[in-house]
Design a protein around this nucleic acid. Structure first.
Lengths: 198, 198, 198, 198
DNA sequence: TCCTAAGCGAGACGGTACGTCTTGTCTTCCA
DNA sequence: TGGAAGACAAGACGTACCGTCTCGCTTAGGA
């Protein structure tokens, strides 16, 4: 019973809403946006909005999934240079944030932080996990992996936030180099089992 | 012209509001709280509320500052000697979070994260800064201090969030030990100027 | 674009509000009524109220206009022949006030007086004006028409106020007869140009 | 126990409040005035205000009594020319209103109307009453005296209101002449018992 | 002359109503 | 039949006043 034309129409409506949201986020920041703003911008009826999404947040995450996919694709490209010695490809995050500066800024200074944090944490988790599988089969780590990934994702996101919001005059590569300098010694110790704190 | 009695009255009112807020955060989570809820609980008039605070967030921040002050005074005040080799007293944060588990949980799963992050960052910033003044007078760091403190505060908060929300079965001292293990090598390199990344 | 069904819905809402107001005026007097009271009674949302009316007063006026229209249609519409020799149909006002004694009392002892005065003045103005057009085409009056109508409306309202508030034991027809006795000689002189004051 | 000095202090405070009220009425109209406005203007503490008056209205009437006394004194002067043939000295009201144009305007467009109406009604009542005692001892009137006085006071006040608020370009004497022209025939008939309405 | 009580200013406070704003539901009509 | 239009109930928001209150300062009049 579902026609393709209808599907396409629905698709168009949802995209119109997502685009309107992004535009508005860039203009005034996520929390100041109202449903009315969105549907006005998207030329969509109020009831239509609620037919597709639960609320503003739902629209945001729906859009975020696609966007995070884009991140993972770009980040995945980095895997083509697996021998840069970096256990985590933090560079990709800094580059991604650099390219989407405005959107990051808008989302970070809003409530989007948690979302980005979670996505980032998952990515890092997977990256390190696959690295570790190579490096040390089933060898037990002195520090649990989720600890490490949460540590790194938190540090990374915090830095991106600071970098973007304060307009710190480093480029993505400089940021990444410093991040790696801060993070790698600890990671190496942790993985090697050298948990000597001083 | 300002009488002490009046000051004390104001103090009492503000504390009543802060206490009401904490109670309510524990009961239903920060975002669901209404200004009306707060003033009902605190037995305070609506206008009085707005005479003291801009809005709900302002009350939270104001309480947080006092509370963070309490953190730095009661917990961090040399419970361990300042020369325990820890440049940042991360232990204090884990202990504090442990003591106020419910409040932290309520705030973290709400919008309070940014706030805690900011306060934590400031504390860490001050702690490290004073340490550094001792260690190396005006010596230039290869990595800027705000970079380091944002890195550390982000990592720390992210870990506390994970620890509290997932009910990870480590105690505060274990968490701190692992955190120090992860963080110290990088910090030492950064401060010593040994920015050899690999 | 405006549908008839929607119009009817709006009509229903506005009437619910007007009815609620009248009920409440009878119960506790106009000035003690709260917008909240009205919308509770009318089962209407707060914003809906303000979508239709500027404030409590506006609702009152709006109702008053319809009500005054009702006055002019139901009562004044030739129940007596237009040629009963009365230039102003003051009888209608007394009858109307008699039928709605409670409402008049509630409104008069509140701030509604000015409103009634204004509405009454307009009615009288129109009545006399149309009479005069018949009687004397463009003939200039020695006393300006607004003077006359304000004079009459003030006197009429003041009498109704006195009659209702003091529960004066005359019926509407007696009141009207006396009013006409007081007013007509002056009016006749004024219109005939016989401005001999003594 | 009450000392004269203390009395004088109280007097001064109350007058300061009354003066402030009048100033403010002229500036922004009675209903827009707040107690805060008054006490700021009068340089008086909030509690002091409430120590002397129940509320804003109470302050107004307290002042109004003195002012009405002034009216009656000026009106009384008119009695020196009792043989102007006027049964009611409406001229005095028009003159009084003319002299205090601003205050009248401010009070009329506010809630003060009822007050003025009442005062005016009483004055007219007394005037006519004394006239009538001369004219016809105990002779019964075909129309009750309160009817006449309410009729006249209402008409008079309504005209003054119109005259002042609309800035009608007649002077007080013209207004009075027209008023007398409108009112006297009816009054004369009523008093003479000639209640023939046409 | 001192001292005690009243008048007062200052302003914090609990309370209530306001008019605005946004949400999510629902109904009507058009394409 | 799906979606645009938009009326609606619900209820939180921040503002504006109100009338009560507590507090110290000033000051006048009896000791």
């Amino acid at each position: 019973m579902e026609s393709k034309k209808t599907d396409r129409r629905i698709q168009r409506t949802q995209e119109a809403l997502r685009n309107a949201l992004v535009e508005l986020i860039l203009e005034k920041g996520y929390p100041k946006i109202t449903v009315q703003n969105i549907i006005d911008r998207a030329n969509v009826g109020r009831s239509t909005f609620y037919a597709h999404f639960l609320d503003k947040d739902d629209l945001l995450v729906s859009g975020f999934r696609a966007w995070a996919f884009d991140l993972s694709r770009n980040v995945g490209d980095g895997e083509n240079t697996p021998d840069d010695g970096h256990i985590i490809h933090s560079q990709d995050f800094f580059l991604h944030a650099d390219h989407h500066r405005d959107l990051y800024r808008a989302m970070l200074e809003s409530g989007g932080g948690n979302l980005i944090l979670k996505v980032g944490q998952e990515h890092i988790h997977h990256q390190i996990e696959s690295h570790l599988v190579e490096l040390l089969g089933g060898k037990e780590l002195p520090i649990p992996l989720p600890f490490i990934t949460n540590y790194l994702a938190g540090a990374l996101l915090s830095l991106i936030k600071w970098w973007i919001e304060e307009d710190i005059p480093f480029d993505a590569l400089q940021m990444d180099a410093m991040f790696q300098a801060m993070a790698m010694p600890g990671i190496r110790d942790a993985i090697m089992g050298n948990s000597n704190t001083r």
